[in-house]
């Protein structure tokens, strides 16, 4: 019997090894290399492989890096909050008010925009929000405004709107899955025992949906930190984020070690915040995700 188990285990390991090795070579190795790299320095094209924390010191001292990282975290936080709050009613509607046979059609409709070219979607927001864009030319045509409004493009508002649009399905799907898992009998029980609809929602539905909300928060927050296209296209000079600086260090300034250090700092910041968030949820809301 024990032999059978180890035989089974070997077969499983053998089967998982091609994808596992691929990930080791293409992901774990390179991530390790980035960390190593961040402790090196580069002068134009010559790489100095002496161990130093110079890059981290520079990142801490030059205010531009702190500013960009802080802005990235702020934008990611705002986008996450906006996306999760606006996505919740949509997920709730599909889970509770759509006929079971129609649910997958609704989910399909929501995911389609996500699968179309991200680059084109972001660019289209530039067209929508621009100085001569759809909103401005439309409003002038109708006569609501005389001159184009400018607070909607090339600033953080534009970045947040565009990212909230791009990450909507990421927020809707985990919340939907959590809502689907809720035993409907619990809601009936709550109503039968005299709770109002509102109280049932806050005392039964919402706590049970928390794992979905936590998953949605993380799955939106983490990739937004690394976004580079949206700030570049619609952010203007005041809307650039840490990923733009990483790209500049690597491709324009030929300072890969500094770029690596910034990448490591962003990863650490994201991990710390995500861990803290999950911990707070477990601690105070007794959520297990």
């Amino acid at each position: 019997m024990a032999d059978d188990v180890s035989h089974n285990s070997r077969r499983g390991l053998l089967l998982v090894s091609p994808p596992f090795l691929t990930t080791l070579v293409l992901l774990a190795g390179p991530l390790g290399a980035i960390i190593l790299f961040s402790f090196w320095t580069q002068d134009y094209l010559t790489l100095n492989t002496d161990f130093t924390i110079k890059n981290y010191v520079e990142a801490a001292q030059d205010p531009i890096y702190g500013l960009l990282l802080g802005r990235s975290l702020l934008v990611a936080g705002a986008v996450t909050l906006l996306t999760v709050i606006t996505a919740f009613p949509v997920a709730y509607f599909i889970s509770f008010h759509v006929k079971p046979s129609r649910k997958s059609l609704w989910l399909f409709l929501i995911t389609i925009p996500f699968w179309t070219s991200y680059l084109i979607r972001v660019f289209l927001w530039k067209v929508v929000l621009g100085f001569n864009g759809v909103i401005n030319s439309g409003l002038i045509e109708v006569g609501i405004i005389d001159a184009p409004i400018t607070f909607i493009l090339y600033n953080l508002n534009a970045v947040i709107i565009t990212l909230a649009h791009a990450f909507a399905p990421f927020a809707i799907l985990p919340i939907f899955v959590a809502l689907e898992k809720i035993d409907r009998a619990l809601l009936e029980a709550s109503r039968d025992l005299g709770e109002t609809r509102v109280a049932t929602f806050f005392r039964v539905t919402l706590p049970l949906a928390m794992p979905g909300l936590v998953a949605a928060t993380l799955i939106v927050f983490i990739p937004v930190i690394g976004d580079y296209i949206t700030p570049r296209l619609v952010g203007g000079p005041g809307g650039l984020m840490i990923a733009n600086m990483i790209q500049t260090q690597f491709l324009k300034l030929n300072n890969a070690p500094m770029g690596a250090a910034l990448a490591v700092i962003s990863m650490v910041a994201v991990t710390v915040i995500a861990t803290l968030f999950v911990w707070l949820n477990r601690r105070f809301l007794k959520v297990r995700s």
Binding site: P30, L31, I34, D227, Y228, I246, S266
Partner: peptide, 12 residues
């Protein structure tokens, strides 16, 4: 994982 992290680490 943010795609830019994957991209720069592979590039390096």
């Amino acid at each position: 994982l943010p795609e830019i992290i994957v991209a720069v680490s592979l590039l390096v």
